[in-house]
Write a protein that binds this DNA or RNA. Sequence first.
DNA 1: TTTCCTCCTAGAGTGTGCTCTAGGTCAAGC
DNA 2: GCTTGACCTAGAGCACACTCTAGGAGGAAA
Lengths: 130, 130
Amino acid sequence: MGGLSVGEAAAKVGLSVHTLRWYEQEGLLSPVGRDSAGRRRYSEADLDWLVLLTRLRGTGMPVRDMRRYAELSRQGDETVGARLELFEQHRERVLGRIADLYRDLEAIEYKIKIYREAEAGQEREAVIAR
Amino acid sequence: MGGLSVGEAAAKVGLSVHTLRWYEQEGLLSPVGRDSAGRRRYSEADLDWLVLLTRLRGTGMPVRDMRRYAELSRQGDETVGARLELFEQHRERVLGRIADLYRDLEAIEYKIKIYREAEAGQEREAVIAR
DNA sequence: TTTCCTCCTAGAGTGTGCTCTAGGTCAAGC
DNA sequence: GCTTGACCTAGAGCACACTCTAGGAGGAAA
């Protein structure tokens, strides 16, 4: 009946089957339900949670912090404050990362400018030498 | 005489002494000049190059690509086109990364909103229960 | 019923980018 | 002249996040 197999879930959330099992083992997601043969069945809630995990990983949250977040979530409503704090801190880190990327991007764009000018110069010389 | 020691250079560019020697060993920078006792002396040009490398690493360029860039640079002017291409590709990757970060940040901000509302709800209940 | 596919667990292996250790040299200050 | 501290090389070790392997079980299609 209900739920996706590990292979289907992996395809749906864009993680490997190995990674899905590893995330579970690492406590990043609560133990997934099993069918009569002991095979994992991923519910909609499991999938939603996995998608959130991929967003957190995508923004560079360490596995350690994701585990902490998962533990807090399992503990229920009284950890909402801690979870809020965790996300707000992470938000700041992500914004900082974006700012750093824009800053370092400037050095790259400067180089692109220099190399474009150098290329144009070489072409001019080639024309003159012709 | 001229040039900074490895310790001074490390302090200046914000990398460890170990990393500086490792970068050189990996071909990310041309062999640094030595004093009479065989100790490295970093020139201004070495430092500029190291700063550029930190920008590239900061934007997530793999060491492999930095090595390729260093090799191209050592080969002289005829590789300007290849270097331009390398930087333009890297620029696209960085812009893509920034876009991904903004996209995934939305999930985080949505969660922050939810948790703020949940916290406000708990406070209201506490007031009523008082 | 045989074959095939997907699944299971436990644990080993991998790629990346450093980071550290061991064992030693050298120059400078006391 | 002796100690101290920064430096040297070669190579081992480490943190992180997977990724893969071995060995086996179960179900379903031919």
